[in-house]
Write a protein that binds this DNA or RNA. Structure first.
Lengths: 259, 259
DNA sequence: GCCTAGGTCCCGTTT
DNA sequence: AAACGGGGCCTAGGC
């Protein structure tokens, strides 16, 4: 399933890597290398010990021994080439759109892992902005009493307002949601939608920024630009979600029993 | 330097991983697992074959067999715990600020890589925004004739304008630079600085967005908000940089000879 | 194809 | 410690 090889020669390494890549196996190469990159920007990395991951779809990730972030990479590339040149194993990864190339020059390869991994697992993310938006869509009273939500992801200009509704006085309300902390750029995003809406319809809407917390300059900007903000509690939202699920659950059970 | 072990029992796996982590070795575990995450958001990943990287500083990266992005992770964590529980090897990674926990439950471990990598290499990035800003700082004529740059990274409000200068008519100019493509949010960023500057000084500055290209809605917004834009050519900038380096080089040689 | 916006973004920098 | 902005950001979703 997963094999580890300590190669005795560059030639052997090249063959193993080539085969693994051709068979779309996960491949990880451990060794001493330099790395060059050229594309949207350009970079050079002088010699050191690293590992290079080649994923089953051709994505390439080069990691140094510390840190979360890879030092160089290539998302799922069209062409991966492995050759020996000047006593080095050279790995070249090319993608177009944007046109970018990564070169890895191994002066030494300590070992190669390769093999096929099978992963049909399902990944579910909870409490991302999408989910928060849906909960607020279902429970607009969490934002303001008497608010009716009309539309999710309403196109305004070239962008999208997270929520669009009408308040108890029939004034349109544009709502921008941030999942964690709202900073000045979120205010500007909201302001932009408010302005475009006003320009297009001639009606001045309210703009409400909704988030669990706000930077001080965000609140400052909100006041200056004539906007509003509403603090929400994520745990409370979570409870609303759970309550709804239970209602749904009960309904499903009810229907099942009926049948 | 790098060792690969196929463990025969969970107990052996736990010992190997514990030791490797304690010795701050790079560790990669290949196996079948489920993953839970809870923190700023939350996620669940059902069973499948993956590999878990534990870096020498405690960063943890969990990769599925395809794709550039890890499915779960933990940047350099404070606490990593490995135990056997219910016939599974359980890896827990905890960090505070923000408080986040990742749990990996291995039902099967195929193999473990571990060892110390030494990497003193130097990484240099070229043509990032910083470098482009410096070239424009030295060559303001690339933006506009008669423009004098006064300041890089000028603090305006709580943020920073990339460049700040004075045009040939002594009107202040705020410049926002984008390295690749400027979109509407770059326009809003610039607009924000222009507004704050105007509010603070009572003088209305010009705002120029500088980039190699612009989205259509960026240009639309620029016009609506009374701002300006200037297209630059990165290759031309590169030539200017090279020319300057040669001048510096010559100067250095000159000084060396003098001495 | 472009464009918009989110991300457990991460990361460096500055206050 | 908070805040701000860049990133080769990547990735998903719309048009």
């Amino acid at each position: 399933m997963i094999e580890y090889t300590k190669c005795s020669s560059n030639n052997e390494c090249v063959e193993i890597i080539k085969n693994a890549v051709r068979n779309k196996e996960l491949t990880i190469i451990f060794g001493k290398c330099t790395v060059d990159y050229q594309g949207r920007a350009a970079s050079k990395l002088t010699e050191g010990e690293r590992f290079v991951i080649i994923k089953q779809d051709g994505a390439i990730i080069i990691h140094r021994p510390i840190g979360y972030s890879p030092v160089n990479w290539q998302p799922s590339t069209s062409v991966i080439e492995v050759v020996e040149r000047d006593d080095r194993v050279v790995l070249t990864a090319i993608r177009n759109k944007p046109r970018e190339i990564v070169w890895v020059y191994f002066s030494e390869i300590y070992g190669i892992i390769h093999g096929k991994l099978v992963d049909q697992g399902e990944f579910v993310m909870y409490m991302d902005e999408h989910e928060i938006r849906d909960i607020l869509y279902e429970n607009p009273e969490l934002i303001e009493k008497g608010l009716r939500i009309i539309e999710k992801e309403k196109p305004i200009g070239n962008g999208y307002a997270d929520l669009f509704g009408i308040d108890k006085n029939n004034v349109p309300v544009i709502i921008e949601i941030k999942r964690i902390s709202a900073s000045r750029d979120a205010v500007l995003q909201l302001f932009n939608y408010v302005k475009i809406y006003e320009n297009k319809t001639g009606v001045k809407p309210r703009g409400i920024l909704v988030a669990p917390n706000f930077t001080s300059s965000a609140i400052e900007s909100i006041h200056k630009l004539g906007l509003e903000y509403k603090e929400i509690n994520l745990q409370l939202l979570w409870k609303y979600k759970k309550a709804r699920e239970i209602r749904h659950g009960t309904l499903l059970e009810f229907l099942a029993k009926k049948k």
